[in-house]
Design a protein around this nucleic acid. Structure first.
Length: 261
DNA sequence: ATGCCTAAGCCCCTTAGA
């Protein structure tokens, strides 16, 4: 099965490109982040026309995640990690959705960006990562074949960014962010894209600004983490880079991992 | 030091993104 992850930056603005990507690449599971849509506005029928059934956790204006499955209903297991956003009284943000598909647990997440740093948004990011780690440890202990995908908003290594200097003060690559990410991996997860590309130079995000795409000024913040049971079944993983270069594209490219049945 | 660009809603400006 092929499990894909795509930060689409607005499902309304991206719908034609998103449907095109689904039709061209036909992932078994498509995990979407930043749908930026309330639940009642989710265009489920558009995906049903393509043969995908979906579950979603929306939010007005920002955040929002969805899981689409080819030909069957995703079985929802959990939504949210139980942590409120950094603003007083805003409640929990829509960043986490977990479902079962064909005996594989799929976690779809949109991890907080953390800028500006220091401040409450950065503290929120680190707190969110600790809760995520706790949940992921539970999944490991249960020995459920699991794939955790999404926009982690962490640049894990220096060779995962076009310029270390340009991004040095950004929350995406602070030592605290990287250490939190490393702690998760060290519990027993395999970073599929990182492992298959040890020399780096693989990007999943290119800023809209300053000609970043044309200059290939990108970095790797979208990840596919495999539990031991799914890492053993790893066939291939990659980035659908050409989709970033199309008209009205998201600033992220889709990523995918293929695991043996 | 700042803007660069995009999306959504409070919709012609502001907030947020990374």
């Amino acid at each position: 099965m092929k499990i894909a992850s795509f930060n689409i930056n607005g499902i309304k603005a991206r719908l034609p490109r998103l449907k095109e990507w689904l039709a061209e690449t036909r992932p078994t599971v498509a995990c979407l982040q930043e749908i930026k849509s309330q639940d009642e506005n989710f265009p489920a029928s558009e995906f049903e026309e393509l043969g995908y059934k979906a579950i979603w956790h929306g939010q007005k204006s920002f955040n929002g995640v969805a899981i689409l499955v080819d030909g069957q209903e995703p079985v929802e297991v959990k939504r949210g990690l139980g942590i409120d956003g950094p603003k007083e009284g805003e409640g929990e943000q829509a960043r986490y959705l977990e479902a079962d598909v064909n005996g594989v647990r799929v976690v779809n997440l949109y991890l907080p960006n953390g800028n500006p740093r220091p401040g409450p948004k950065f503290d929120y990011k680190l707190a969110w990562m600790e809760l995520l780690r706790a949940r992921m440890r539970e999944l490991l202990e249960q020995e459920i074949p699991t794939v955790v995908v999404g926009d982690f908003n962490v640049i894990p290594r220096d060779n995962d960014v076009w310029s270390v200097q340009a991004m040095a003060s950004d929350a995406l690559m602070q030592p605290e962010s990287r250490e939190a990410y490393s702690r998760i991996l060290n519990d027993g997860w395999t970073d599929a894209l990182g492992t298959l590309n040890p020399r780096g130079g693989v990007w999943t995000y290119w800023d809209y600004q300053a000609g970043a795409w044309q200059r290939d000024h990108g970095f790797r913040i979208d990840h596919l983490l495999l539990s031991p049971q799914t890492a053993d079944r790893l066939v291939a993983a990659g980035v659908d880079k050409d989709h970033r270069g199309r008209e009205k594209a998201s600033d992220h490219a889709p990523i995918w991992v293929e695991i043996r049945d």
